[in-house]
Amino acid sequence: MTMVSFQTTLFRVLKWVFLALLAITVVFPFYYMVVMSFVPIQDLLRNPLTLVPEIQQLTIDTYRQVVAPESEGGFGFARFMRNSAIVATAATVLTMLLSIPASYAMTRMRFAGVKKVGALFIAVYMFPQIIIAVPVFVGFQIIGLGTSLVGLTIAYIALTVPVSVHMLRSYLRGLPESIDEAAMIDGATRWQIMRKITVPLAMPTIISTALYSFMIAWNEFLFALLFLSAKPELWTVSLGLTRLADGQEVSRTILMAGSVLITAPIILLYGLVERWLTEGLTAGAEKG
């Protein structure tokens, strides 16, 4: 057997072994999360090796308990999810309203200062959350936005804007400028061109960018922890789940039910835009 055919066979076998192992490693925690959220805690403690519980074993009490408000002995997850939905939606809408015109201008128009704006966004990438967290937190406390969903929404815009601008710019750069020029000759203004021509053309990218922003805001944890710890009625899902985990008397199965509830919407959204999302994120990678 030659070296070439030996290696070809070897790599083919290794490839499938590797892919199978990786698939298990990736998917298993999610499977475990779902299964554990449906079994009573006594069963988990009695037999930790249960991976395929029997049908009559299953319960949805965990979900009932986690969703119910505190006044009814639950953990208030319905409220956490509503708060998160409000903040993430508001942050996403504002991010898109700000970054669509800006990305359009940055890719289409040459004017004094536009290069500096581009450089600003690259620099902003480099500055991480924890460094801006201190002053944003202190500053918002002082102006009275510290413990509010409005303050959190504004902070989330800071997190979602850089990546949104990056995704939109990469796409808009690929759209031919001749369309814009033709429309300008017909007397359209830049704002009109953007609204009537560019936005409809870029809709798939806009939707995937918006959903990516939504995911960032929905999943965010540090700012929620800093801003809202003192006010349980404003907690978002991330914060609500950590408080659930810190509670001594809360069983793991209820924690898993909460985890399923906060993960499900994200996976649903992700399923809808998976293709567009990966294309938007990796735009430019082919060119290196």
Partner: peptide
Amino acid sequence: RAGWSMVGPLVAIVTMVIVIPI
């Protein structure tokens, strides 16, 4: 003019929540 009206709001908010905090 149009350009700055398009990037201005974004630059303002990035300045407010990122540049000034840094």
